[in-house]
């Protein structure tokens, strides 16, 4: 009984961390069709911003939930103005440019923070479930992921802003004809996507040892989750993250963490063979 609770929590945590890792990319790649290979580095920067802010005496939750997304969002804004906006609609060129950006960010982080491992302790103590101890921070990550998903749904579906953004992504010419500047909407969307990446990096930072190359560990998972999710932003994110998170944890518990990772990748390959357009091209059609 206790064990099943523990496994359930670990599964929810795995799903939640996939949602977190992928949400920024889902906005930038899923909505804007910009292949952002620097996504992992945005997360890495979120982590460093958090650690620096905590080092300066800022409350850790303020640092993670407010400062890191803002700072990384602003970096994203600069990147969008200088690089990305010239490359909309040119898929391969954006790949090359963002890959270059990722190398640049790794280099900058190495220069500033050194090519060495840093980290902070988790702010939430562990607690007991029957005979088991669980990392209390897992719950925090689950809560952040749930709030994030709800917020994305509400913004995209129920606000005028979300409506304009969605419209612009589908038909920029029509949006322009109705008096909205696609240029500014793209800019705002990229800012949001970067901020989400920064948030993810910040929230995950206390669980890992951070190095400038940490971003590489996230990028593959993020792309797999977003691509397997398919055209619907939120529904796709939730469905593929749930699938991969559960598969990963089942195999991790049954065999070993290495097999968990392998199983995740194998299931992604099979899924994309069966549903090449992603889960939401077939199910939950027309959902957010």
């Amino acid at each position: 009984m206790d064990l099943s609770v523990v496994i359930l929590v670990e599964m929810l945590y795995a799903v939640a961390s996939l949602v977190l890792i992928s949400s920024g990319l889902a906005v930038v790649f899923g909505m804007m069709k910009v292949i952002n290979l620097a996504h992992g580095e945005f997360m890495m920067m979120g982590g460093y911003v958090t650690i620096t802010a905590v080092g300066l005496g800022v409350n850790i939750f303020v640092a993670m939930l407010i400062i890191a997304p803002l700072v990384v969002g602003l970096i994203g804004l600069v990147v969008e103005r200088l690089v990305i906006r010239h490359l909309y609609g040119r898929l391969v060129d954006t790949m090359l440019a963002t890959w270059g950006l990722s190398l640049l960010f790794i280099g900058l982080a190495t220069m500033i923070f050194g090519n060495t491992t840093t980290g902070i302790s988790t702010p939430i103590p562990g607690f007991t479930v029957g005979n088991y101890q669980i990392n209390g921070y897992n719950f925090f990550i689950i809560v952040v992921a749930v709030v994030l998903v709800i917020a994305m749904l509400v913004v995209l579906k129920s606000t005028r802003l979300g409506l304009i953004a969605r419209g612009t992504m589908q038909r920029p010419d029509m949006a322009a004809a109705l008096g909205y500047s696609p240029d500014r909407i793209y800019m705002a969307t990229f800012f949001c996507g970067s901020a989400l990446s920064g948030l993810a990096g910040a929230v995950l930072a206390p669980l890992v040892g951070l190095v400038p190359t940490s971003g590489g560990a996230y990028i593959a998972k993020a792309f797999i989750t977003v691509i397997a999710g398919g055209p619907s932003l939120v529904a796709g994110l939730i469905s593929s993250a749930s699938l991969f998170g559960v598969v990963n944890q089942v195999f991790t518990f049954a065999i070993s963490p290495v097999f968990g990772e392998v199983a995740l990748l194998v299931s992604a390959v099979i899924l994309l063979r069966l549903l090449p357009q992603g889960v939401t091209a077939k199910f939950f059609k027309g959902k957010m």
Binding site: L3, V6, I7, E10, Y13, S17, N131, Y132, Q133, I134, N135, N138, L207, V208, G209, A217, Q249, T252, F253, P257, G260
Partner: peptide, 11 residues
């Protein structure tokens, strides 16, 4: 760098 499931297995 993620050891959550391992910690459960150890217990």
């Amino acid at each position: 760098s993620d050891f959550g499931s391992t910690i459960a297995k150890i217990q």
